[in-house]
Design a protein around this nucleic acid. Structure first.
Lengths: 193, 193, 193, 193
DNA sequence: AATGAATGAGGTTTCATTCAT
DNA sequence: TATGAATGAAACCTCATTCAT
């Protein structure tokens, strides 16, 4: 008797998730370029062939990871929007971003690594662009939040906020040892609110 | 009449610089991994074989580039030290960094890409560590400058300054279009001085 | 109530024919080597696994197609034998062959492709040999027909007839556009009868 | 001291010829699809890598062989054109074609195999089309020869001649044993001239 | 009878590096 | 010093076949 379609679908779903998990692990450890399909398959505990049953290639794995990342970003911004005041919304965004980089600096490093890939790498570039586009879209929302706060130049103020935030994330991800993230967070936020 | 040893050394040095220049161009365009030795040799206008006469391999090329980058950083900090006041010194550092990223964002992107390379990539990691170490050393100098300014917590203040600076550099390098670098620079510096 | 053995056999036969039909379609479109078992199964509307229930592998599919082709050839020769005179018999053979290549040049192309497969390809070679053997056998019958006509050298005459016929089939199959098959047929047949 | 450019050019030329020779041998033995790059490289006595130094892939090898074949065809037609009378020209073409297929039936088989490749195989199709185009071009010349002979319908007559010729070639290449090529040649030519 | 997940061998291709010249 | 032919390991990817369900 063959498996039912639902059963197969469940198997497929679990396999895809298993592979995606293995992929980000390996990509983080070795980098996208240096990681081989074999590495990912071995980490996932499956054969190379099966991996190709689920993903059309290495680039497709990256695409999947980037789409997940985008999903995360969208989710955070949605959650932020539920907060009652603009300040609380911005605080939520900052807290969340810093918490994430603190919990898993290597993940942030990885996406930063991808975003700084040379343009000539078409495959990476294409998918990396998706992430960039989404961040552009979200930054518009952030400008709106500043606008609601009634600050003089919301666009500039929003960019200022983002640069400060990303600066902290970048430095923490690069030098996680001895980086006084909590103190700096306080200092940074105090200059804005 | 044979060339003197000095002359030979000078010629050798120029050849190395030519290759290094070609290497960073190609690495920026294609990325370290995707760039091939052949690409670099062709760009330098020499043969693969001759390249190996000057550099022991691809990793050695990267090492040379990173050493140059370190040299640059040291140089800037030295120049900053010649300025009369701490504030002027910090302004010099900031102006220089922002000017550089504005002039050649791809160079900044490249080194950021290298610095976010995963630890598991031994070759890159080893040389990337050199850069990291140097930046740690220079950040100590920067703390000293803040200390001379007499601010309450020079260490924290220095890190705050660096995060703000690197945040701007990162964002400009990632979204060079429509990024109001001059305005943000003014805004950022005004919060510090 | 279980199906009778005959019924089962009939169902099995129909399934095999369905698969065979799909196989020749796919083989003609992609070629034997390039076609995948998956392609064939998908075309037949069944799963890969089920295909293996009916055929022992890719080579077996080819074998089946070649056996069908042989069956066709035998059939045509049998039908020809029912014609009253030798000339009518030969005319029937020629008409049939040309009609077939005109209707489905790609089928003729396919079997020609198979017949020109190199000897080293053991699998194809083995089955292709079956076809060759059958054609040799049928050509003997054709010699008999010429013998009945009372021509001087029936063997040579028969071969001459075959070369002319196959030459036309080959050229029509290779250049179906603008090939004046009817005119040539008349011209060719007029030289023989 | 590096080799001179001429020396390198000579090495390249010889290597290419060596590889081409190996390629047609292997393709004839195994067929284009079944032959692997490794097979060709091993037959040529070189490494896989070196083969890629000279040919951009398997398809490029095929292209080279087909271009050679076209060269041959053009050459034969040129030589035929030097004969004084149309009949001698046609005789030359026929003699040459039959002589070739008799000497190396496997070569004729191979190109026939390629020409009967399914259209869906884009790579083979592209190069095979070159051969087809050339044959179309040459067939125009052949029509001219018949026209000079003053026959009623030179186009049809030329096609008739070609089908007869190719029919013989096809049958000889398929059943080289016991095929009375000389006798058939005489018979066939006697019907035309 | 029926499915498609799973395997692994085998194919194509790239490229850092070596070396004869 | 200088060249580029030559190597081979390692990467990506495909697909005939098996097998648990």
């Amino acid at each position: 008797m063959p498996r039912t379609r639902e059963e197969n679908e469940r198997i497929r779903q679990m396999a895809k998730e298993n592979i995606s998990r293995a992929a980000i692990e390996v990509f983080i450890e070795k980098g996208y370029h240096a990681a081989s399909i074999d590495d990912v398959a071995r980490r996932a505990g499956i054969s190379k062939g099966l991996l190709y049953n689920y993903f059309s290639g290495k680039a497709d794995l990256l695409r999947e990871l980037i789409l997940s990342r985008i999903e995360e970003i969208v989710q955070v911004m949605k959650e932020a929007a539920t907060k009652p005041t603009p300040v609380e919304q911005l605080m939520y965004i900052a807290e969340h971003a810093l918490h994430n980089v603190q919990e898993r600096p290597s993940v942030y490093r990885f996406y930063l690594h991808i975003q700084t890939h040379p343009e000539a790498d078409e495959v990476v570039s294409t998918y990396s662009q998706l992430l960039k586009d989404e961040m552009t879209r979200q930054s518009k929302h952030q400008v709106d939040i500043f606008r609601k706060m009634g600050v003089p130049n919301p666009h500039l103020q929003s960019l200022h906020f983002s640069t400060a935030l990303h600066g902290m994330m970048l430095m923490y991800a690069t030098y996680p040892e001895n980086f006084p993230l909590p103190e700096l967070k306080v200092k940074m936020l105090s200059t804005f609110f």
